[in-house]
Design a protein around this nucleic acid. Sequence first.
DNA 1: TTTT
DNA 2: TTTT
Lengths: 167, 167, 167, 167
Amino acid sequence: MAGSVNKVILVGNLGRDPEVRRLSNGEPVVNLRIATSETWKDKGTGERKEKTEWHSVVIFNENLGRVAEQYLKKGSKVYLEGQLQTRKWTDQSGQEKYTTEVVLQRFRGELTILDSRGSGGGASEYGDEEPGQISRGGDFGRSSPMERRPEPAGGSRHNDFDDDIPF
Amino acid sequence: MAGSVNKVILVGNLGRDPEVRRLSNGEPVVNLRIATSETWKDKGTGERKEKTEWHSVVIFNENLGRVAEQYLKKGSKVYLEGQLQTRKWTDQSGQEKYTTEVVLQRFRGELTILDSRGSGGGASEYGDEEPGQISRGGDFGRSSPMERRPEPAGGSRHNDFDDDIPF
Amino acid sequence: MAGSVNKVILVGNLGRDPEVRRLSNGEPVVNLRIATSETWKDKGTGERKEKTEWHSVVIFNENLGRVAEQYLKKGSKVYLEGQLQTRKWTDQSGQEKYTTEVVLQRFRGELTILDSRGSGGGASEYGDEEPGQISRGGDFGRSSPMERRPEPAGGSRHNDFDDDIPF
Amino acid sequence: MAGSVNKVILVGNLGRDPEVRRLSNGEPVVNLRIATSETWKDKGTGERKEKTEWHSVVIFNENLGRVAEQYLKKGSKVYLEGQLQTRKWTDQSGQEKYTTEVVLQRFRGELTILDSRGSGGGASEYGDEEPGQISRGGDFGRSSPMERRPEPAGGSRHNDFDDDIPF
DNA sequence: TTTT
DNA sequence: TTTT
């Protein structure tokens, strides 16, 4: 159906270091485990209570994946936007299982580092006069670095990421 | 942890009529099945493709639950905000399962009807000079209708919902 | 400062037809006037009241601009995401004025048509196996159509937009 | 119109201390000045550039206003949700002016402190078994503290805020 | 006027 | 498994 929106916004902390797998072309696919939590005070007992929710995040967005890989670690606080996706899989015993994840698809989603260290800028790749959003997935919509910034003839293309450090 | 945000925004259509269970106090708990989908054209084949994602939504928010119960049906288009929650349960065979849902907690979340019919107003319950958000969960933070609008002495309390039709 | 987010989400109706200006390169810059409103009932008088807020939206995003130009008109209902931007200008009498707008920058923002007619798909431009978000600005991050889909040798490139109708 | 959404999400830093005015009933109305910014690298010159956007925020939400008053200061980083509102006013010279603000209405909006200090919990006021969202405006929908937590007979009601520190 |  |  058209006219639909599927958006998740999380601000939370990484429960462990990012897990990075790599596609055959070298692109990273990064998995994060993000905790969000709420605290409240039990009106009956006056006790302070807390409930933590854990979120599985998968980053297919190449640029945000590189940011995650390089700058996030256990404990990092992030703002991220992705979409809800549920996939079906079969465990070893043949049982059907469903897993729901927050997915940052290729060229989509957002990731912003909120730690005082580790923040300070973004992995923006704009090269013109218009400002680029910090670490925003949508900034980068192209399928290969070659499409991205036409090199002058004879120009050498180094590691793209070198000049896109997010702080 | 403080400083966290757990928010889901969906615009989509109900795949079936709302399912309403009722708490011992009469409050509705409403389950929705919402479809969002994306379409794209395969660059190779030129074929138009579509992928639909299904979301399980649970409304504990009493007022939004009543709105859902009364005004939503299979096919209705809604905007809603809730939070991600994963719960563990055990199926009949003793297998542990996890289900992730979009939850509108008591006094929280938002629900807005987007159909041309069925839209046109909100279930707002503000009674003062300030405008109330349309069908917003947070509008209603009180735990019983009795707390809500002090009745004049001798006043009779009718069905609360009568005067809160969302369109 | 890094680690910042500036996001506006609107669901509302166009108060008039889109206004389209065109850059020297032919790219459209589209201005929308969007109404959102809230209704509530005055607790004192029992009167139903409504307050409408008007938003100025500027679409620099080329693809979303084309969608707006072609498919939106007075009365259309849309979901859109942009960012807040305030600009200073001087009126004819030399007075300094400030105007705050919701801006969809190049390659950014989202626009989804919510009318039953006019919905039904998206202006996605993905050409691979992964689904593209409907009418999402970030889908298109390239600065010219030439970068976009490498044509087979001898292939002719027609109006790009023809095959990207959002429904 | 019903079926509308008017939402602003900001993550940014306070440019100065909160400004607090007080209504005749003692409720605070708090004004914040929030900076968001974007950085990018000019593709031509290779220069790193930055553009800052300033947002005026007005908090009518009593509870979030108290949180802002007590815990925010110049430099604090916050996540907040409000709605766009433009108001007309006349300056000293009789000129008509328009100002657009991000408004957190009574019982609405969200405010979460993101600084490592100053975060760590929320001003939640739930008193039952369900967890309360951190510093969420919508948690509190009632117009006076008296409605809030029924006191045991003879119970004394102290400063409500004492036991609701957000960390 | 913030932040990095 | 995070954070406060």
